[in-house]
C-alpha cells in the first residue's frame, strides 16, 4: 500500500490515517480499471456526458492498510432511467479470497435508451426529507477541491477542474466529485460507523464549487441518514443512508 497516496487522499477527504483503509478508498484504487472499462468500445455509452448518479458501497469488514487486496471491476446490465438509460459499474475487493468490500456505481446517460426498449426503471433511489433536517455541519467547499480530489483519485474529468472546462460541458461552474462528497460525509462519521455496513447514496443536484453547503447526519436504524444540501434551498446534493449489515 502506498502510504503517501493514502495520506494525500485522507487529507483531501478528511479521514484519519490509521490502520484500516477509509471506506471509499478502494474506489480510487479501482479508478484506472473503471476508466478502462468505460472507455472500452464495448461499453454501452460514451463517457462524455455520463453522469454519476449513485453509489452503494458495502464494507464487509475493515480493510487493513498493510495487506494486499484484489480488485475486480465489471459492468452490469443497462437499464432504463426516466431521463435516459443507466448502467452499473461493480467493483469488488477480495481479501482472503472472500469479498471484503464492494461498490456499485450507477451512471446515467441522458437521452440514451436501454436496449430492447426496457421500461423505465422507476423511482429515484433515495428520497430525502423536506424540509431538510437541521444541519449537523456547514462545509465550506473550496474552489480547488475538484483539482485536489482529481490528483488523489486520478479522476480528471474536466467538469471538476475549472469553471471554464465545466461550462464547456454545460455546467454553471466546476462541480465537486460525487465520490468526494460521499467520502467527506463518511469522514464526518469517523469512529461512529458499525463493524460492517452499507452506504447507499444518490448524487442529486451538482455541488458547484466553491460553495457553502449544509451537511446532516441523523441516527437511524443503528446507522445514519445522510444528506448534503445547498446553503439555501431544498434540492439536495447528496442523499444517502448508512446501515449495518
Amino acid at each position: 500500500m502506498d502510504v503517501d497516496r493514502l495520506a494525500d487522499y485522507s487529507r483531501v477527504c478528511g479521514y484519519r490515517l490509521g490502520s484500516t483503509l477509509p471506506p471509499t478508498y478502494p474506489h480510487v484504487l479501482a479508478f484506472p480499471q473503471q476508466l478502462a472499462l468505460m472507455t472500452d468500445p464495448a461499453f454501452p455509452f460514451g463517457t462524455a456526458g455520463l453522469v454519476h448518479i449513485g453509489n452503494a458501497l458495502t464494507v464487509h469488514r475493515p480493510l487493513p492498510v498493510d495487506r494486499s487486496l484484489a480488485l475486480t471491476v465489471s459492468v452490469g446490465p443497462v437499464s432504463a432511467h426516466h431521463r435516459g438509460a443507466q448502467v452499473e459499474l461493480v467493483t469488488e475487493v477480495r481479501q482472503d479470497d472472500t469479498i471484503a468490500w464492494e461498490s456499485t456505481s450507477t451512471y446515467l446517460s441522458r437521452g440514451a435508451s436501454a436496449p430492447g426498449g426496457a421500461t423505465v426503471a422507476g423511482k429515484e433511489p433515495v428520497d430525502g426529507p423536506t424540509p431538510p433536517p437541521m444541519p449537523t455541519a456547514t462545509w465550506r467547499v473550496p474552489a480547488d477541491i475538484g483539482r485536489r480530489y482529481a490528483k488523489v483519485s486520478g479522476d480528471f474529468n474536466p467538469i471538476h477542474l475549472h469553471p471554464l472546462t465545466a461550462r464547456a460541458f454545460g455546467f454553471p461552474g466546476a462541480i465537486a466529485h460525487g465520490m468526494w462528497v460521499k467520502a467527506h460525509a463518511l469522514a464526518a462519521l469517523e469512529g461512529r460507523l458499525p463493524e460492517s455496513y452499507r452506504v447507499d447514496v444518490a448524487f442529486r443536484k451538482p455541488l458547484t464549487i466553491p460553495g457553502t453547503v449544509r451537511f446532516s447526519a441523523v441516527a437511524a436504524d443503528r446507522g445514519w441518514d445522510l444528506g448534503v444540501w445547498p446553503g439555501s434551498g431544498e434540492r439536495a446534493h447528496l442523499l444517502g443512508t448508512v446501515r449495518p449489515t
Binding site: V3, D4, L6, A7, D8, R16, L17, G18, S19, G191
Partner: peptide, 17 residues
Amino acid sequence: GPYARASNQDMLTATLD
C-alpha cells in the same frame, strides 16, 4: 520515518483507540 505522513491528530486518535 514510517509516520512521516501521520498528523498529530492521526497519532493521538490511534493512541486513544
